[in-house]
C-alpha cells in the first residue's frame, strides 16, 4: 500500500531537465526566463522530438549558446526566432506560424470535429425517423396487423 502510494507520488512529480549538461545563469532573472522559454519552444533538428532544452546533441548545445549570446546582446525574442527560422525553416518551431502550408495542421482537427458533428446529427435523425416509423401505421397497415394477429390466435385455438 505504502509502496503503491510512493510510486504514484513519484510518478506525478515532474522532473524537468533544463539543459542538463550546461545550466546557464543570467544576472538578470528576466533574461533568464526568456532564455529558458525560447529553448523550450525551439525544436532540435538532430533529435526531432526534443526541444533545444531537452537535447544533448552537439548542435543543440551550439544553438543554446547562440541564443544565450543573443539574449545577452539584447535581441528581442522575434529577432532570435527569425534568425533560426531563416536558417532551419518553420520546422524548428513547435508552434509553426499560420501559412497556406500549415492551415490544414491548424484547422484539420476542427474539420474532423465538424465532420463528427455532421455524422452524429445524421445518425440521430435517422434513428428517430425509424422510431417514428414504427409508432405510426396507416389504416391499411393497421388492418393487416389485426388480421395477422387474429390469424395467429385462430391457429393457436385450432
Amino acid at each position: 500500500m505504502i509502496k503503491t502510494a510512493l510510486i504514484i507520488v513519484l510518478m506525478s512529480l515532474n522532473f524537468t531537465a533544463y539543459a542538463a549538461d550546461n545550466p546557464v545563469e543570467f544576472s538578470n532573472p528576466e533574461l533568464q526566463e526568456r532564455y529558458y522559454a525560447l529553448i523550450d519552444e525551439i525544436r532540435c533538428l538532430v533529435c526531432q522530438n526534443q526541444s533545444l532544452a531537452d537535447s544533448h546533441a552537439d548542435l543543440a548545445q551550439d544553438l543554446r549558446n547562440e541564443i544565450y549570446q543573443k539574449v545577452l546582446a539584447g535581441e528581442k525574442d522575434e529577432q532570435i526566432v527569425t534568425f533560426l527560422v531563416e536558417r532551419y525553416g518553420d520546422f524548428v518551431l513547435y508552434r509553426p506560424p499560420l501559412t497556406k502550408n500549415t492551415w490544414l495542421l491548424w484547422f484539420g482537427p476542427f474539420l474532423f470535429l465538424l465532420l463528427g458533428i455532421y455524422v452524429a446529427i445524421r445518425l440521430i435523425k435517422k434513428q428517430s425517423a425509424e422510431k417514428n416509423a414504427f409508432t405510426e401505421l396507416d389504416e391499411t397497415q393497421q388492418k393487416r396487423l389485426t388480421e395477422l394477429l387474429n390469424e395467429d390466435t385462430d391457429r393457436n385455438k385450432g
Binding site: L45, V46, L59, D62, L63, E66, R87, Y88, G89
Partner: peptide, 12 residues
C-alpha cells in the same frame, strides 16, 4: 566553431 554551419542551417 560551427557558426557558418549554423548560417547554412546544417543539422546533419
Amino acid at each position: 566553431a560551427g557558426t557558418i554551419g549554423i548560417d547554412y542551417g546544417v543539422y546533419g
